[in-house]
Design a protein around this nucleic acid. Structure first.
Lengths: 188, 188
DNA sequence: CCTCCGAACGGAGAGTGCCTCCGTTTAGAG
DNA sequence: CTCTAAACGGAGGCACTCTCCGTTCGGAGG
């Protein structure tokens, strides 16, 4: 099943009545903005206010805080899966490396994604799986080209890189140094 | 200045009047227990209750939530600094590796420590510095023995390892695989 | 041993956030 | 245009953080 379909299958949340769909979209937009600004501590009351709907409406669409986060997360996973296609024409190692860099950059701005990566949840698990299957061909190709150890899995690589990407560094130079260290660790 | 003194210098919080000192200790013990059980979401009300003191007393000793966390953190840093001495007699690489393993194990159980590692704060900054100077000799020795690349700093190593230690893994095997990957990344 | 005062105590209450419940409104099918 | 099921939204209950201040008590001085 292609990625787009797998993502669509998870998007069953969006209601069909015109007003409800409008509110759903407003909530997602407000949620995205709030989490970007205030990190994972964003207040749901505040998100409802920004979206111009009552708190009740927020909770009807997203019964728990995690439900909302899951929906936001879905969009980000989607973007990451697209990135895997975009780098497909590069040389094997360069392609994998470029995707991982993209992953790191993405994770840096959207910190909520990282929290999600470690969280327990059916939807989030499926998201993780979607992302891993987007990256896997890149890893396999690099392994086939003899550039990466054959005993690492895409799951290992993502855990490694996401762990390193989550840390707060002194400065950009240290960040790059450590990130290089980590990514080169899988290289033969 | 030896580690014990640097730690002591940060312990100026503890009050001197008998009842106050008793309460301070009770709060620290309760805090340690609560954070161990419930993670970083532990409630301060609950901690005060466990310690058998009023919430007011908690706040007098620790004006903010972070003040309490800092104090708990201090004890953990202390333990890690001791660990560096304990492994000093091993071979250069083995000693560094053993200390990092200890670090990872510690961080695994006391998750609050990791949050602290990334947080902005004077006291926490000093704690970090204490921990780094405890680990540095081990790294330098391994570098002198030609076992570790000479251009990595102890700061880099700790960031790398703590990032990787913070991730939630599928199982212990994956955790070990990725951890090995990361630690061997600095090896020559 | 007693007095006394400033340090320490502790809990009521204000502020804020999460989430539920239910009376009111409204989209859109017939 | 009517009518009903779906959607709305905010008041209110509960939990937690933090402040404020009247009450208690440790321990120094007599």
């Amino acid at each position: 099943m292609p990625v787009s379909e797998r993502v669509a299958a998870l998007e069953t949340r969006r209601p069909k009545r015109a007003d409800a769909a409008r509110n759903f979209d407003a909530l997602v937009a407000a949620g995205r903005a709030a989490f970007a600004e205030q990190g994972s501590a964003a207040s749901l009351d505040d998100i409802a206010r920004r979206a111009g709907v009552g708190i009740g409406t927020l909770y009807r669409n997203f019964p728990t805080r995690d439900d909302l986060i899951e929906t936001l997360y879905l969009g980000e996973v989607d973007a990451l899966a697209d990135a895997a296609d975009e780098v497909a024409e590069l040389e094997p190692w360069a392609a994998l490396r470029a995707w991982l860099d993209r992953f790191v950059a993405y994770v840096g701005t959207k910190h909520a994604l990282l929290d999600g990566l470690n969280r327990e949840s059916t939807v989030l698990g499926e998201c993780r799986a979607i992302m891993l299957s987007a990256g896997e061909p890149l890893l396999v190709r690099a392994q086939a080209a003899g550039e990466v150890a054959s005993d690492v899995t895409i799951g290992d690589v993502v855990k490694l890189v996401s762990g390193v990407a989550a840390v707060a560094y002194e400065d950009a130079a240290q960040r790059d140094r450590v990130l290089n260290l980590a990514i080169n660790a899988i290289r033969l």
